[in-house]
Design a protein around this nucleic acid. Structure first.
Length: 1041
RNA sequence: GGGCCCGUAGCUUAGCCUGGUUGGAGCGCACGGCUGAUAACCGUGAGGUCGGGAGUUCAAAUCUCCUCGGGCCCA
């Protein structure tokens, strides 16, 4: 038995109830259990970082995942839905540091690594729990009680195992290289952790004195004065033309060497009054030229080095064409230095502070020394020019401080060797959309560098490398067990975090003590192993062998360089193949102006805010429907409200038949299409066809992950087909009071349609569909809609019928249009509607005549071929007086009248007509196109329609009767009468003719208004009102009967 | 500076791959209808330099190039 439901769609209430129901009845667990023996689908959740709040983008991400997994579950797959959490790394360290008000690593050490790490752990777990609740409130179904977490020993062992594989395969390397370095966090950071934005920096031109040549200088340019102390070389382009220029300023004369094309630009900046080229040479001619370090007095150590010019291809003809090289502070500089056996002179410590060797600058930070160095150069007359420049500069992704490039010893995975194989592998992956892999990801891989996996931090997976301080040998451990077996300390167990693992020591073959290298992993390496770690590999092998690689992953397009890449890299190292078979790349959420959302810009919208106003289903359906997954999504409240309205319509449509069904005791178990199949009307067959073809289309769209199209076709069905058309057509049938097969047919059809549309919508809007299902479910149904199978059958699809109905709707719409033109309300019938089209169309439309007739409120529907119509309407005989006149003389008028009264049919193909004794021949009239005044013309895609606007007594009487009924109904409503309450009615009409017309419909009025009595003349009753109907005064009184 | 994506009515968008009758919708707006889904529902209408420019073509929202704006990523 159905329950009646509230007239307003109330998502908050519904969602609360549904989520409680799921929890109480363990619906999630039972749903998964139901599919435990089915074909498996291995999905890997990209682990969100545990920062605390989910934002709209994270919500969108999980909603996409949830909808797809729910769909697949309905398609009877056993889905792997273990969620993941990325819980290590700098972002959390930075947050904890902020809370503790720490500024440097030293303070952490003083505070105690153990306490610090424990705080990080506690923080990460708290955040995870908060975010879990937020995801749950979105209705996301995942295995929340058993997520994979990067901080568990089990997970860490998967990371360790992977590194050991890399080591075995010779892909692990330690080396001195230039890396991105964050002086604040005192650690190396990955390319993918560098964020670029505009920054103002110094821009200085410096003169490097040539050895053995008086007053002669190389001119270099830099934005980083602090790198000059590390300068060991100058690079020039071998085939670029350089010039030695004699330049004068303030009476002084000097010689400058720089690229020929840049002379004017640079010397103007330098404030030189005049200059001339002394000689030109190619860059390669300059190679070997010796110069003096400009700050060798300030930095005595610089006197020990031999500074020379070298050629290099990376030099371009910009600024001066001479590039100052400090091997410790630049990638290219480092490479150049390596080629020429230059020292890697690093004068900075981890904090970016000059060490003692840096002489005068010792103890100063980079920031402090920039102006200092510039000033020193100026004092020494070596500064040619200084100004400021705004350029894009890299920053640490979490602390937002500018990074530097610095040579340090780090651990690398030699990914660049695997580039070709990676490119091969990604071709085998199915990308949605295709360009995500074919263009975007490919481009990124082609730029792949070796992966620096070490970080000089605390809160991360400790790198499982133990090193002998004596002989330098290393050991890589792939599991906790392996470590403990080799450990000197006899402990039962150890937590795989710093500082605990750091206390484990191993004996080296040489007899000395091996200690763990202090680094932790780049956090990107954690999530990189997710596809096997989530399967508890390497501890458990079975599931890995059965399921891996992943069937499907989906993340935002920022993950091209992130998780899509890190996973591929780690997997290539470990298994030599891609860890996923298909990837859906989704977009970003932006504000309504297409800008990034951020709290500081004040355009931030949180998922909670949306949920609290419109509910999770609306939010879900909105983000899924409003743009293609791979496009960016501009968040727009108005559109969200539209989606809400659509849900409201859905709710109303669902609710509409319930009271009638309850009244008639129609139970879900009574539903039986077989029984009523002979009573199906054409509109029933049509809506059945529409719902079936919609379900089919949705499934097709889901195959290509076109979630937006899937949703939109459901919405279209609900609003356009179900609400605006079928419900309109079916309404009168539900009012039939007796037991009628026509009504039962309607109930059955409505039941089928509502049920099916709920099923199809269930993956996207899991709450509202559940509550509907709970009300309409049959005894043999599963306990939850989400345990149902996706509707497979589409036996009712009838494309011809759908097309036909489309035409009928066009005709009805056009008729409304015409009614508006002739100012005829729908309440007043029109005499007839003419539909003019080709034979085939008319034949099809024949079956829809009654629909067209009721929906257009036409007394008669006439289907006509084009020439039929033309005979009747467009061509009429019109008398030719020049012929009639001479022949009929004074009878001419009479004859002309006769001709006017004739129709096309009367004269067609006739040689002669004899009417009232007159002989009329074709030359006496012409055939003229005439559209009678009472007809108005409109168009539809297959022809034309005409509305006959003629008013006759029948129409008037019906029109007035309906006007009266309408008024009485209005009064009933104002009296707040029950729908089936009986009344007594009296009417006084101020116009005798109209009263007579209305009286013709006495029975009709009594029926429609449930009036036991209907009296004309004197009005009396509980409720009396005076109305003006088309200018006629009407008094109506009603009383309860 | 490079790669990829996006830019169509006030708003959200379909169409673009595979060029071809007046570029479709929805919301909003204006006007109207319905009144047994009723603080709901339905219709009609007005709104478009298809970001801009050039080219290819008989024909360009659609193909090519350039350019502007936005997003992600890289240097």
């Amino acid at each position: 038995m159905f329950k009646d439901v509230k007239p307003q769609y109330n998502p908050r209430e519904i969602e609360k109830e549904v989520q409680e129901f799921w929890k109480r009845e363990k619906i999630y667990e039972r749903t998964r259990d139901l599919r435990r023996k089915e074909k498996e689908f291995f999905f890997v959740d990209g682990p969100p970082y545990t920062t605390g709040e989910i934002h709209l983008g994270t919500a969108w991400n999980k909603v996409i995942k949830d909808s797809i997994l729910r769909f697949l579950t309905m398609k009877k797959y056993k889905v792997e839905d273990r969620p993941g959490w990325d819980m290590h790394g700098l972002p959390i360290e930075v947050k904890v540091e902020n809370v503790l008000n720490f500024k440097s690593k030293k303070e952490i050490e003083e505070y105690g690594v153990e306490k610090f790490v424990e705080t990080c752990k506690k923080f990460a777990i708290e955040q995870k729990d908060r975010m879990t609740e937020q995801f749950k409130s979105l209705g996301v179904w995942m295995r929340w009680d058993d997520p994979y977490m990067t901080i568990t020993d089990e997970y860490i062992e998967a990371v360790w195992w992977t590194l050991k594989e890399a080591h075995k395969k010779g892909l692990l390397e330690r080396g001195l290289r230039v890396v991105n370095w964050c002086p604040r966090c005192e650690t190396a950071i990955a390319d993918s952790e560098v964020e670029y934005w505009d920054e103002e920096d110094p821009s200085i031109y410096v003169k490097f004195p040539i050895k053995g040549e008086e007053r002669t200088y190389l001119v270099i340019w830099t934005t980083t004065p602090w790198t000059i102390p590390g300068n060991l070389a100058v690079a020039v382009h071998p085939s670029l033309e350089y010039a030695k220029v004699r330049a004068k300023k303030g009476g002084e004369e000097e010689y400058l060497i720089l690229a020929s094309t840049l002379i004017d630009e640079v010397l103007s900046l330098g404030g030189y009054e005049e200059w001339e080229i002394v000689e030109t040479m190619l860059g390669e001619d300059l190679e070997g030229l010796s110069y003096e370090h400009p700050l060798s007095e300030e930095i005595p150590i610089q006197k020990n080095f031999d500074h020379r010019v070298y050629v290099a291809d990376f030099v371009t003809a910009e600024r001066t064409g001479c590039v100052h090289c400090a091997p410790a502070y630049g990638q290219e500089d480092f490479e150049l230095g390596k080629r020429h056996n230059l020292e890697v002179l690093n004068l900075l410590d981890e904090r970016g502070v000059y060490i003692e060797k840096a002489g005068k600058y010792s103890g100063k930070s980079i920031r402090e020394s920039n102006p200092l160095i510039t000033e020193d150069l100026r004092k020494k007359g070596l500064l040619l020019h200084d100004s400021k420049i705004i350029h894009r500069y890299g920053h640490c992704w979490r602390c937002k401080n500018p990074i530097i490039y610095m040579a340090t010893v780090q651990w690398f995975l030699k990914i660049s060797q695997l580039k070709e194989k990676m490119l091969e592998e990604i071709k085998k992956v199915k990308w949605y959309p295709p360009w995500a892999g074919e263009s975007r990801f490919k481009d990124w891989i082609e730029n792949a560098h070796d992966w620096c996996i070490s970080r000089q931090r605390y809160w991360g997976v400790p790198i499982p490398i133990w090193e002998c301080k004596n002989c330098g040998k290393i050991k890589v451990f792939g599991s906790k067990k392996e470590l403990l077996e080799n450990a000197i300390e006899k402990v039962e167990d150890v937590e795989l975090h710093r500082p605990y693992v750091d206390e484990i020591h191993v004996e080296c073959e040489c007899g000395e003590l091996m200690k763990r290298v202090e680094d932790v992993f780049d956090v990107w390496f954690d999530s990189a192993v997710a596809s096997w770690a989530t399967l508890r590999f390497p501890k458990e092998k079975n599931r890995f062998e059965r399921l891996w690689p992943a069937d499907f992953i989906t993340e935002g397009h920022d993950q091209t360089r992130g998780w899509f890449y890190s996973q591929l890299g780690a997997s290539m190292v470990a298994f030599g193949k891609a860890p996923y078979k298909s990837v859906l790349m989704h977009g970003f959420t932006l504000d309504d102006e297409g800008r990034k959302m951020s709290k500081s810009l004040g355009n931030y919208v949180s998922p909670e805010e949306v949920i609290s106003k419109y509910g999770a289903d609306v939010l879900r359906a909105y983000v899924l429907s409003s743009s293609a997954p791979w496009d960016d999504l501009r968040f727009n409240w108005e559109e969200l409200v539209n989606v809400y309205r659509t849900f409201n319509i859905f709710w109303n449509v669902y609710r509409f038949p319930l009271p009638y069904m309850i009244l008639d005791d129609f139970k879900p178990e009574d539903w039986d299409m077989e029984k009523i199949k002979n009573h199906l009307r054409i509109e029933d067959k049509w809506i059945l066809s529409r719902v079936d073809s919609t379900a089919k289309k949705v499934e097709e769209f889901m195959r290509g992950y076109e979630l937006h199209k899937a949703l939109r076709s459901i919405f279209h069905f609900i609003t356009e087909d179900l609400s605006r058309w079928y419900i309109q057509l079916v309404r009168p049938r539900t009012w039939i009071e007796k037991d009628d097969p026509d009504k039962l047919a309607a109930y059955n059809v409505l039941y089928y349609v509502i049920r099916k549309v709920a099923l199809v919508l269930a993956p996207f809007a899991p709450h509202v569909t559940e509550i509907i299902f709970q009300n309409i479910r049959r005894k043999d149904d599963p306990p939850s809609i989400h345990m149902c199978e996706w509707p497979r059958e589409s036996r009712y699809i009838d494309e011809e019928l759908e097309k036909m109905m489309e035409l009928a709707r066009e005709i009805v719409e056009e008729s409304s249009n015409l009614r508006q033109k002739i100012k005829r309300k729908l309440r007043w019938p029109v005499k007839r509607i003419l539909i003019v089209s080709d034979e085939n169309t008319l034949k099809n439309l024949e079956k829809l005549v009654s629909i067209i007739s009721t929906q257009t409120n036409s007394k008669k529907v006439e289907l006509k071929l084009k020439d039929e119509l033309e005979r009747e309407l467009k061509y009429k005989p019109s008398p030719k007086f020049d012929v009639i006149g001479p022949k009929f003389k004074d009878k001419s008028r009479e004859v002309a009248e006769i001709i006017r009264r004739l129709n096309y049919e009367d004269v067609k193909d006739k040689e002669i007509l004899e009417i009232d004794g007159y002989k009329i021949t074709p030359e006496m009239f012409s055939i003229e196109r005439i559209l009678p005044e009472n007809l108005v013309r409109g168009k539809f895609s297959k022809g034309e329609i005409y509305l006959d606007a003629e008013l006759d007594e029948d129409i008037e009487s019906e029109g007035y009767a309906k006007e009266i009924i309408r008024r009485i109904q209005e009064m009933r409503k104002r009296m707040q009468l029950e729908v089936n309450e009986i009344i007594l009615t009296s009417i006084k009409i101020g116009d005798g003719r109209v009263e007579e017309l209305v009286r013709r419909h006495e029975e009709f009025i009594k029926n429609e208004t449930r009036s036991k009595e209907l009296n004309f003349g004197e009005v009396a009753g509980e409720f009396l009102e005076e109305w003006d109907i088309e200018g006629v005064k009407v008094k109506i009184a009603i009383s309860k009967g």
